[in-house]
Design a protein around this nucleic acid. Structure first.
Length: 319
DNA sequence: AAGGGACTCAACCGCTTCGAA
DNA sequence: GTTCGAAGCGGTTGAGTCCCT
């Protein structure tokens, strides 16, 4: 038998969501939590397909979503991760706090692709002027070399770490939207931790015109920033450790990387929101640390300058 | 001011993966 | 081990907006 459609095509509304629909959806999720999407249209009366509801929630309404311009750091992360993971936007998104896979995908397709192309063009120009033929590398070559770099770095890291004391347990450290959340042994994340954000979201809708659903979402930026760090409600449940703070923990944390299989376990113990919307690929969780390490290294090499060029020159030196 | 091309991004489509029975 | 429904994911589309002529 064929698979039934997720929704009746007849009578299902399509197109942009109205603020009223958003409010209904958020209110429902506020009460019941995300999940069981098939029942959402039925229970809410929304004339939307369950997939549409899920997408609207994960890409737009979910608390903790940051909108607006990508920072340099985020950009670098995306470029790095794209080279590392390919077009696995959900996986990439799991390393970028507050960004959705859709956002990252759009940003890549609309900005970064062009940027890389432009950079490549300018580098080609430079190559023609000043570089020897052997120094000329295509974008594809650069990507392959970058991947090789990362692979080698990863191997070196794993080897180095395997020498350290394996007794430390990382099971309490969980990558949470790019941050590591320390969950106490008896503490569990709760959906209610985000109600503050939702209420702000609702307040925003009440205040603003329909067109402003975008701007109201932007008002959540303040609160969304809290999700990863200082949200009072969530901080009651989790102790957030920012990547910067992670530096000091790196030694302890990294010891567990010697056994990548083990790290799969902690990645499965992710927060509720990740469970619902941003699953983290178990085998990739430790790569966050690697990426952090690589990025930091890149920063020290390239400073605030263009990481791409820094990496390019680095890789060029290798060949 | 108007027209049209370029750009952005929310949303949809369809395939894949996962997990329960 | 197999089947099937639900959810996840990436590619693509198209409406709205911006910008240039």
């Amino acid at each position: 038998m064929g698979r039934p459609p997720c929704c009746d095509k007849v009578g299902v509304k399509k197109g942009p969501w109205t603020p009223e629909e958003d409010i209904i959806l958020v209110s429902y999720i506020q009460k019941h939590g995300p999940g069981n999407w098939r029942s959402v249209p039925t229970n809410t009366g929304l004339l939307r397909c369950s997939k549409s509801c899920r997408l609207r929630w994960t890409n737009y309404l979910r608390p903790g979503i940051k909108r607006g311009n990508f920072t340099d750091n985020e950009e670098k992360m995306i470029i790095h991760l794209q080279a590392l993971l390919g077009n696995r936007w959900a996986a990439i998104a799991s390393y970028l706090p507050q960004r959705t896979d859709n956002d990252i995908k759009n940003y890549w397709n609309t900005h970064l692709k062009k940027k890389l192309k432009k950079l490549q063009t300018s580098l080609d120009g430079n190559n023609k002027e000043g570089f020897s033929g052997s120094q000329q590398i295509s974008k594809g070559q650069w990507e392959r070399r970058l991947q090789t770099d990362i692979h080698m770095a990863r191997q070196a890291l794993c080897e180095a770490l395997s020498l350290e004391n394996p007794s430390n347990n990382m099971s309490d450290l969980k990558p949470s939207n790019g941050y590591y959340s320390y969950m106490g042994p008896t503490q569990t994340p709760t959906y209610a931790s985000s109600t503050e954000n939702i209420s702000r979201l609702l307040q925003g809708w009440m205040k603003n015109s329909p067109k402003s659903s975008k701007t109201t979402s932007e008002t959540t930026q303040n609160s969304s920033n809290n999700v990863g760090g200082t949200d009072s409600a969530s901080s009651q449940d989790t102790h957030i450790v920012s990547p910067d703070a992670l530096e000091s923990l790196f030694g302890d944390v990294s010891q567990s990387l010697s056994d990548l299989d083990d790290t799969v376990n902690f990645s499965q113990e992710i927060s509720l929101f990740e469970d619902e919307s941003k699953p983290i690929l178990g085998s990739e969780a430790p790569l966050f640390l690697l990426e952090k390490w690589l990025l930091d290294e890149g920063d020290t090499q390239g400073g605030e300058g263009d990481m791409m060029e820094a990496s390019l020159s680095d890789t060029a030196e290798l060949f």
